[in-house]
């Protein structure tokens, strides 16, 4: 079933083996009433297809957009979403929680490339 992380990660493996660019987005921290716990993940390929979830559907669109950048650049990003920032009206969590999402490319290690802090998605 496609709502388990097991199958999501297997899908990432299959996409990679099929030659697709792939990014993993994982909830690493939550505050307040976040819809999905830490460890929840979304996998995205370079066609914009995605599986899984990092929220109740509120911020997935923004995460997918960021993930496509990460697939291109190879540099991981740490995204934060919550009511505390002004972009909350665009892509925030209606439940009032805050989440941090680590987005990384599936590929060889990019040594020394840290996750650029990135608050919200002001687009």
């Amino acid at each position: 079933m496609l709502n388990t992380d097991q199958d999501i990660l297997k899908a990432a493996e299959d996409w990679h083996k099929a030659g697709r660019g792939v990014a993993l987005a994982t909830v690493v921290e939550t505050w307040g009433s976040a819809p999905r716990p830490a460890g929840s993940s979304l996998v995205i390929n370079d066609e914009g297809s995605f599986l899984g979830s990092v929220s109740g559907g509120c911020v997935e669109g923004a995460v997918v957009t960021e993930a496509l950048d990460v697939i291109t650049s190879g540099e991981p990003k740490l995204l934060e979403f919550g009511v505390a920032d002004e972009t909350a009206w665009q892509v925030g969590l209606s439940c009032g929680g805050t989440i941090r999402v680590f987005v990384e490319k599936l590929g060889e290690a990019a040594a020394g490339k840290g996750a650029a802090g990135h608050k919200g998605v002001a687009s």
Binding site: H16, V28, A109, G112, A115
Partner: peptide, 23 residues
């Protein structure tokens, strides 16, 4: 990822440790 999926397929627990600052 392949090693992680192999552990999961074999029903063995595993932990991925990520240094958020350095990746």
């Amino acid at each position: 990822l392949f090693a992680l999926n192999a552990e999961r397929a074999a029903r063995r627990p595993a932990i991925v440790v990520t240094d958020i600052a350095s990746g």
